[in-house]
Write a protein that binds this DNA or RNA. Sequence first.
RNA 1: UCCUCAGUAGCUCAGCUGGUUAGAGCACAUGACUGUUAAUCAUGGGGUCCCUGGUUCGAGCCCAGGCUGGGGAGCCA
Length: 504
Amino acid sequence: MTQTFYKKLPSVQRYNLNPLASIIFATQTQKMTIKAILSSPAYNTQTTIQGWVRTFRNEQFIAVNDGSCISNLQIVVDANSLNELDSKRVHTGTSIRVTGVLKPSLGKGQVVELIAEKVEILGECNPNEFPIQMKKHSLDFLREKAHLRFRTSTFSAIFRLRHLLSFAIHDYFHKNGFVNIHSPIITGSDAEGAGEMFTVSNFDLENPPRNEDGSINYQEDFFGKHAHLTVSGQLEAELAALALGKVYTFGPTFRAENSNTSRHLAEFWMIEPEVAFNDLNDNMDLAEDFLKHCIRFALENGREDLEFLQEREATEDKQKPIEERQTAPLIERLEFVANNTFERITYTEAIDILLNSNHYKKKKFKYPIEWGIDLQSEHERYLVEKHFKKPVILTNYPAAIKAFYMRTNDDQKTVAAMDILVPGIGEIIGGSQREERYDRLLEKCGQFNIPEESMWWYLETRKFGTCQHAGFGLGFERLVMYVTGMTNIRDVIPFPRTPKNAEF
RNA sequence: UCCUCAGUAGCUCAGCUGGUUAGAGCACAUGACUGUUAAUCAUGGGGUCCCUGGUUCGAGCCCAGGCUGGGGAGCCA
């Protein structure tokens, strides 16, 4: 496993994620990361490592992990390096510093091991209280120990991959000439229309100032109006795109929906590129290329962690009934997506496919299928998982079921929207070509009951040098879920915020 | 918010038709062993059976309400 990973070193170095970087550090301090040691063991040299004990076997072998990679380093101790008293203090979770000499391992499970000369116990870990043990814990249990779950192999792998994907996103946009825009987190715009919003206020909640009719007087609040946490940076991104050309946002987003599912969070991170002069096709090309880049980046730079998660998933799958198991191993699924063209069909074609499916004829769909109504999860899953068996981009939805800012097509019935659906997750990207025609946009505001005066700034961009433009939104956690194979969104963000839960 | 399943030792879970002192593996302690891979073997300690109320001679088990969590749906990214 380790071997195959490090054959891919050149690509790692290219992105300045060089595991050897700490060797330079080591010449001064003797301290090395386990990742650096395993990537090219400097046999017979004195080395110091620091990390957390995973297991202590046979009172002779300590498996240590320092978070630099998924693999542990085996430490070999004896009475000289670790006295009996200290030996009793070494438990799973204990932090230690070990100095010794690297030798080829005599055992089978690893190529290199550190023959300890000195073991220092830095932080004890009472095993009667420490909940993380070297055995299988349920993800469910670990979710309640989110402050300690980083110590597990699974979560350290997930969060290293999350970092890689975050880096991949900035890398992609930067290399393609995009400008990163920090859209506001607090917004005074009350017409976002993308869901329930959290109020931001510094009022005394027990006794807020009130108007004569009893309603709360937000004019006296901090911002002089009713302010919220953002539910999307898109509108602001559009403003920037209509000057900078290509922009993207990547920041936290908040939805106060009472959603209790494995795919929703109250606080999540969203990526929203927006490109001037792009039409719907350009938008699809961008989204597909971008998604593939992120997946390839993870495959190239996070191979070892992906292999671990793949194995974990396979073990889990063995417990499940056959129909619930994954169709292919994780890495194979990712490679398939990275190397195949996404299917592109219109909403109307999708409805036809569904209506002509055997699944429909056998009445296996719970919800009705009819042009004009939104597709249900079961319909999307059928298209992606059964019919096409690959990511699908659905376009040109009926105007009534999509947002006000999407561009009306020439048929006057549909809008230039696109959703990218992937197996297992469902909708991962939603986007559109935006309505750039002032009159049309004004009309849409009316139809959607969005007060013109609250959108004056957005409308003005259509008055002053308007142009065709398009963009999309990608839920970052959904991308991390897809790449790691995790099936619950709460397991791909360090501290999930969901209804009734803001612990840590 | 709706549907559905669950809550028993630090963790994973068993617990029969309601019946006497609630079990196993892991973890922990003590000892043995010492090139182990979640080491192994022996012995030992460890329980608010989610909470409240009810039915019953008797409730971990049945009933009602609540809390928490999982899965699915809606909303969506």
